[in-house]
Design a protein around this nucleic acid. Structure first.
Lengths: 228, 228
DNA sequence: CTGGGCAAGATTGTATGCAATCTACTGCCT
DNA sequence: AGGCAGTAGATTGCATACAATCTTGCCCAG
């Protein structure tokens, strides 16, 4: 702990802090976030905590059940597919726009993100690397100068963290840093078509790493098994 | 007023009610929503009102200024363009998907929406017609069975109401019901390509009805004029 | 011994009181 | 007369107390 870093105080700061924790897989789907508990951690009253929790719920990261509390969302297989279909719809076009408008400063930011991601991986912090990897996608929307869509992508990246926590196949390290490198190259060349294609392929890659088989059939058979 | 209809009580209900009022242009950009005032209207405490207001702020309908209050947002020209660029990215694809999955029930819902829109126009309620017209677009996303993207489109339609309130050129009635009719026809024929093209054209039509000239240059010249 | 009902504890939902901040008005000074 | 400062009013920010609801464990009846 670093005593010099101030704890988040406002509702938005706490919401951002909790979101980071979810992105880093330090807070996992299904976990309960009690108002009193969270309030004690940050040293604020329940009013502020409730604002933050409702904020996250609105982003789809939490599910608030009346008189029961706030729980980290557990996206169903259908929701997981929807998230990646939405990303497939938005991000390739945004990557193209980003390639057309990319500035040296923006590209430098992306490169620093990739560097930090490598550092985190080397330091044995896969959660941090995952968070940075997600932020890479948001940063591309920012470079495209599309604030509205950037907000949507931020939400989708957040939910992707939950999806990855639930449905990721292998536990080994990320294999995708190569894709991010290639994207930065395309942006640097202002090659919109290449950026669009690379992003599309990258998202399909991610999707193929997920185990999104429909478990509803198994649940039904479970019901049968228990009925015997 | 109908005494049998219960006033909204919960934060979500109040948020939905306020959203409708914005959609119908009964609450206009720049208007202030005081906590006490809103609370008195619905007969609830400020706590619930604050939740509702923050909800709308998160959707981009309100702008909450610290210690000043909540004001209906006034999208800039840039934000207005972004909203329609996002819609152009999402809705044509969603219309295609909707055409492929459309059921008789869904189509009946859309037709009833169009009918209600005509009734509202005939009854001299252009605000209500506008609201229904927006809901038509959300309904298509619902037919496409894409809950995540439906949420995004709901947000975009909301913001479009603000954009229309600020930048719509003519005051005369909507001219677009024909486009909605054609879209329903395409959906009924399960003609995805036609639905996609019609939606794209419809959105371009809407955009062309807006006066999104950049006023920043005029502001600069005003500054010059005042400096003399 | 098992199953249902009941009561106690815990947690969230809401209202309200107090503190902090902003706005606007008034009065003084130049 | 005009401008600025100070103050009073109003509005939001936050914490907390109380009410409603849910969960859980216990006890009693069958």
């Amino acid at each position: 702990m670093d005593g010099s870093t101030r704890m988040p105080q406002t509702a938005d700061e706490i919401a951002a802090h909790l979101t980071e924790a979810v992105h880093e897989h330090r807070v996992l789907p299904g976990m309960k976030l009690s108002e009193d508990e969270v309030g004690e951690i940050y040293g604020v009253g329940r009013t502020v905590v409730r604002q933050a929790l409702r904020h996250l719920a609105h982003d789809g990261l939490l599910r608030i059940e009346r008189n029961r509390g706030a729980f980290v969302a557990k996206p169903t297989v259908k929701e997981a597919r929807e998230v990646f279909e939405a990303r497939a719809l938005l991000e390739p076009s945004i990557a193209r726009a980003a390639a057309e408008r990319a500035t040296p400063a923006g590209i430098a930011t992306l490169e620093s993100h990739i560097r930090e991601e490598h550092v985190a991986l080397a330091a044995g912090e896969p959660g941090r690397a995952l968070k940075l990897s997600g932020h890479f996608h948001v940063e591309i929307a920012r470079i495209a100068d599309q604030a509205t869509i950037e907000g949507f992508i931020r939400q989708l990246v957040s939910r992707s963290s939950l999806v990855i926590a639930l449905y990721w196949r292998r536990r080994n390290a990320m294999c995708e840093s190569h894709a991010h490198h290639a994207l930065v190259d395309a942006l640097r060349r202002h090659d919109g078509q290449a950026a669009e294609d690379l992003m599309k392929g990258h998202l399909l890659d991610l999707l193929s790493q997920l185990d999104l088989r429909d478990h509803s059939a198994e649940l039904l058979s479970l019901r049968e098994a228990l009925a015997r």
